[in-house]
Nucleic acid binder design. Structure first.
Lengths: 143, 143, 143, 143
DNA sequence: GTGGTCTAGACCACA
DNA sequence: GTGGTCTAGACCACA
């Protein structure tokens, strides 16, 4: 897992962790039955407090993505991939929808919106693997 | 001005006000030299705390979009439209960019992303005028 | 609200708070649109850390029982009573079911079980108001 | 012995083992003087860590239900059945009491509680022998 | 070793 | 004033 987390983001760290685990499971990078890193191990790796990782894991447990294996750690559930793919779809779609809805309601000319979207789609698709490893979920709320 | 504000949104109310004024000015709905509603009047209309409106106006003043006219209220500046168009462009572009960047980094298949974007673009473009008046800026944070 | 909380219970304090708010809403002791006590106020009253109360409130928010009113506090939602009645029913039923299921599977003679249940039902019904105020949700896990 | 253990239950595995042995002895399914399975054998059968079984046996020994027979294993004591019947009574009664106490304090209407209890009592009594063998102690904590 | 709960207290955004 | 996040560190149950 290539996790990276930013304290500067407006997205809370624990949510960043939740999103990254969700996407990793959806993509098959984390497989059912496998253990995810221990709270303490991931906290050390991300340089955050164990409580913060624990909170993310609790949210993932609540969603049914991981389940505790007492004394061993947290295990990816069998239904995790299906759940995470649904989550992924829902997250991506809602954010795209909101961004485009905002674009339209800003009354920016339709042509300009179309052009902008095509440009950004291309740009996003061209990210290098190195950049991807650096990626951090970031808020897109109207600053 | 057709302002509408939602307490349910994850976007702070003062930011919703800032965004709506910014877009209204960019679109020419608010003209240079015109006065915007008083803090108290807008607070009453939107059913929000006057402090909240004041904070929005403060931010708009900081950006040079409005300026105090002693004894009269806040006036839309002459450079407001240019400023707001730049702002609008920047806001829309950054949100679209972040949403698409997230889509790519979620490892959702590129075809699926392309399809989703086209669908959402069409959907957004089909909003009725009535719906537009109802529009409220909404967060696209990666929850 | 007559809240009471015990650190000795095997039920975490934040869950005790969640249960008591749930029951209070179900019973109509807390009404839709009203604010529940602030995190700090309830923490002081219960002699627990504000974080603990905050965690309970977050869980109640997640369930749709309360909603944040930014700057004001947490408000009981309109759907809260329906939600809490369902919750109450589900909690009570599952605990009764588990206790009786255990009784049967312990192979205690059916007559003895029936007698015991009747006795305990009567005993529970006879609690004084004073006792009720003292009540604390307690685990019934097989110690 | 028909032991069954569930990692999904909120009841710790060692407690599940303790309860099942206790009930088996109380019911006469395990007789004084008989040997219970070795730690290793039971651990293998239940697919749990030997430490977990060892902890359960330690607890049962502490209660005087089993005693070590050097070189042979753990033996059911002569006083075991009396002890376990007392234990059984105490466990069942306390869980029923807590469930009913919760029901009353939840302010669910008394009629509804009475009905619910009768329904659940009937339901519990109708379990098939096959189901009983499958039974796993389950928590009734006020989640 | 594993995760869960709690206190303590800082800091922040928002109204 | 309100709640939300985070670090820090203690303590506990469980395997």
């Amino acid at each position: 897992m290539l996790f990276r987390v930013s304290a500067d983001s407006t997205v809370p760290i624990y949510e960043q962790i939740v999103a990254q685990v969700t996407f990793a499971v959806a993509a098959g990078d984390l497989e059912p039955g496998g253990l995810i890193p221990s709270v303490r191990a991931l906290a050390e790796r991300l340089l955050v407090h164990p409580n913060t990782v624990a909170r993310a894991y609790q949210e993932l447990e609540r969603r049914g993505v991981v389940a505790p294996r007492p004394g061993l750690g947290m295990e990816v559930t069998r239904r995790a991939q299906a759940l995470c793919r649904r989550q992924r779809r829902q997250i991506v779609q809602s954010h795209v929808r909101e961004a485009l809805s905002e674009a339209v309601h800003s009354q920016m000319p339709p042509d300009e919106i179309g052009l902008l979207v095509r440009e950004e789609l291309q740009r996003a698709g061209q990210a290098h693997p190195a950049e991807e490893a650096q990626w951090v979920p970031s808020s897109t709320s109207a600053g």
